[in-house]
């Protein structure tokens, strides 16, 4: 029994570690903190139809919301949010598989499966270079949850137009600017997207900090000032993202960059100082303690020695 538990322990530890590693290395994990699940998705989300009258009426209904974010280089990140209806409110469903699909005019292609995290979110990143647009010129995606013993199946879809945002970091003397150019492909080549609101975020431990915003001009350009007093990681790196949220039929459009513009924070774990609250006592305390102890125990030793002499003398 015990050895079995031990075995489970090791294998469990290893898998958790592997899983964490994969999650951590996946570029889709752009922000350490996912947007809170209770928030209605701001993205182009498709609500699942109400579950049809099934023969097992006691199943709970579920809801899948699919949103997209376009990155430079025809990369799209799909994000499925799976929730279940309980007591009048929608609660995130973790630990369930979500399948992602590319929808063509005639057929559909399975892209992959991802298990939802604690907040019911499954993310999947895909290159759409080779992907064909549908008859209306859209990229069409779907996310599906097959249901389980307790939950109804559900799905969500998203149809978006291609767009891209180019980010150019500019550092001059003491000022930093983020130059952005937003365009959408068209038969005439790249056409600028004007009047789009862009927000620049920096990734922080919890959530993302908004550091600047702006609106694109006729040319699809916008320059946004970037603060110079931010703290970065141990190398001073800042993980910067510019986002246009849920814009017209483009979904989210985003661009990211990593720049060493921040103040480096030491990641070193150094010994805590000698103090009352650390594991290391102040020197005077150690000295006093041992001097006192040595003095008393030293006298005890002398007394014991004298006693042994006494015994010898008899």
């Amino acid at each position: 029994m015990v050895s079995k538990i031990n075995q489970l322990l090791t294998s469990f530890g290893k898998t958790v570690f592997a899983l964490l590693l994969i999650l951590w290395l996946t570029p889709s994990n752009l922000f350490a903190q996912d947007p809170p699940a209770k928030e209605e998705p701001t993205e182009e989300a498709a609500e699942a139809e109400e579950p049809e009258e099934a023969d097992e009426p006691e199943k709970f209904s579920s809801k899948m919301s699919l949103s997209t974010t376009q990155f430079l280089g025809d990369t799209v990140e799909l994000q499925g949010l799976l929730r279940a209806k309980m007591d009048k409110s929608w609660a995130a469903v973790p630990n369930e598989k979500v399948g992602f699909f590319a929808i063509g005019d005639e057929d559909e292609k399975a892209l992959g499966e991802v298990v939802t995290n604690a907040k019911g979110i499954a993310k999947f990143r895909i290159s759409t270079k080779a992907m064909a647009l549908n008859a209306d010129g859209y990229l069409a995606f779907a996310a599906r949850f097959a249901g389980n013993d307790e939950l109804e199946e559900s799905d969500g879809d998203a149809n978006i137009l291609r767009a891209s945002m180019k980010l150019t970091p500019v550092k001059e003397d003491s000022t930093i600017t983020i130059s952005l150019n937003v365009t959408a492909p068209s038969p005439e080549g790249e056409t600028p997207i004007a009047e789009a609101d862009v927000v620049v975020y920096v990734k922080r431990m919890v959530g993302r900090l908004k550091v600047g915003e702006g609106t694109t001009d006729e040319e699809g350009n916008v320059d946004i000032d970037f603060p110079t007093d931010l703290a970065g990681d141990d190398l001073g790196n800042l993980y910067i993202t510019a986002v246009i949220e849920d814009y017209e039929e483009y979904g989210n459009i985003a661009a990211t960059t990593i720049q060493a513009w921040g103040r480096p924070i030491s990641y070193e774990i150094s010994e805590l100082p000698k103090s009352l609250w650390s594991p290391h006592p102040p020197s005077w305390m150690v000295i006093t303690f041992f001097v006192l102890m040595a003095a008393v125990w030293g006298h005890y030793a002398i007394v014991l020695y004298k006693l042994s002499q006494l015994k010898k003398a008899s």
């Binding site: 538990i5 489970l8 322990l9 469990f12 309980m86 469903v93 630990n95 307790e150």
Partner: peptide
């Protein structure tokens, strides 16, 4: 419902071993 709540609230837990 309780059972699903458990799931949803992320009470999934890993013991020392299992």
């Amino acid at each position: 419902r309780d059972f699903i709540k458990l799931t949803v609230l992320g009470a999934a837990a890993a013991a020392c071993g299992s």
